[in-house]
């Protein structure tokens, strides 16, 4: 009996120990960043390394706000771009999914095949021709270029189609009998039924845009339009501000909205991520 108990505690104890060691390893980089954001430029690389800032300072955040282009400009750029990107993709791609799920029309099969094709090719690989298309359209180096190429989201349309096929047609029929227009049926009767799918898609898409790096790098050249991830790159390139404390402060502000969105909406997020993300 006692041996069994000892074995039980040993097994349990080692399980918790292993899980905790990995927890510390996984969390450490972010904790290091967060602590570093409140250190002075000299303190970040103190030797031997010290986790906690002594004394903590907010000078990095103040510095960020006092740069020639203040930090809030980049933060706003990211916010505006993410907002329009998510709303646009949600609206347009869900309507496409709705049409595929609930109507029979000519070319719907072809369209579905084209959507599957788009899901197979990661968009990042097409950034060269997309850049040339954006140039032909005259939208290079504008915020529009960060938004409209991604509104027709093939994976989004596909997932909405799948989800919407599970919602009964009778809702649509009842709307028709009451004389509502097709668009109104979709907007007022049908879309509330697919709220969970909207939420899951929105939160995952938000994190993807917010973190987007390659396309803004390719398409933007004016600093005042930069989003947070590429602003971080300019900070690294800038020889006068290559200061890890400053970088950590900027990185913390970049990560915060995504991490908060994740923690707040975790269940939706994990469910959404396993199906939505194409990374």
């Amino acid at each position: 009996m006692t041996i069994d108990r000892m074995r039980f505690y040993f097994k349990n104890g080692s399980l918790i120990l292993v899980a905790t060691i990995f927890l510390i390893l996984m969390a450490f980089p972010l904790v290091w960043m967060l602590a570093g954001a409140f250190k002075s430029g000299v303190q970040v690389f103190s030797f031997p390394p010290r986790l906690l800032p002594a004394p903590p300072t907010v000078e990095n955040f103040v510095d960020l706000l006092q740069r020639p282009i203040p930090f809030q400009v980049f933060f706003m750029n990211s916010t505006v771009v993410s907002l329009f990107h998510v709303l646009g993709a949600l609206f347009v791609s869900s309507m496409m999914g709705y049409a595929l799920a609930k109507y029979q029309f000519r070319f719907s099969k072809l369209l579905f095949v084209l959507i599957l094709l788009g899901m197979l090719i990661p968009i990042q690989v097409l950034f060269i021709p997309m850049f040339l298309v954006a140039r032909d359209l005259g939208i290079v180096n504008t915020r529009i270029a960060l938004v409209i190429p991604f509104i027709a989201h093939p994976l989004g349309a596909f997932l909405f189609r799948q989800y919407m096929m599970g919602v009964p047609d009778s809702i649509i029929e009842s709307g028709r009998i009451d004389g509502a227009s097709e668009f109104r049926i979709y907007l007022q009767l049908f879309s509330p039924m697919v709220g969970p799918a909207f939420a899951a898609f929105a939160v995952v898409d938000f994190v993807e845009v917010w973190n987007g790096f390659v396309w803004p790098l390719v398409v933007l050249s004016s600093q005042e339009l930069f989003t947070l991830p590429i602003f971080l790159h300019t900070l690294i390139e800038d020889p006068y501000s290559h200061n890890y404390a400053l970088l950590f402060a900027a990185a913390t502000m970049t990560v915060a909205p995504a991490v908060l969105a994740f923690i707040g909406l975790q269940r939706k997020f994990v469910a959404g991520f396993t199906i939505v993300s194409d990374k």
């Binding site: 927890l23 290091w32 790096f213 991490v259 994740f262 923690i263």
Partner: peptide, 21 residues
């Protein structure tokens, strides 16, 4: 939650942290 969080961190942020580490 903790195991998953790095997934929502922007790649450039991850790069900056590990450059320092």
């Amino acid at each position: 939650t903790i195991y998953f969080i790095p997934r929502v961190v922007a790649l450039p942020v991850g790069a900056i942290i590990f450059m320092a580490l």
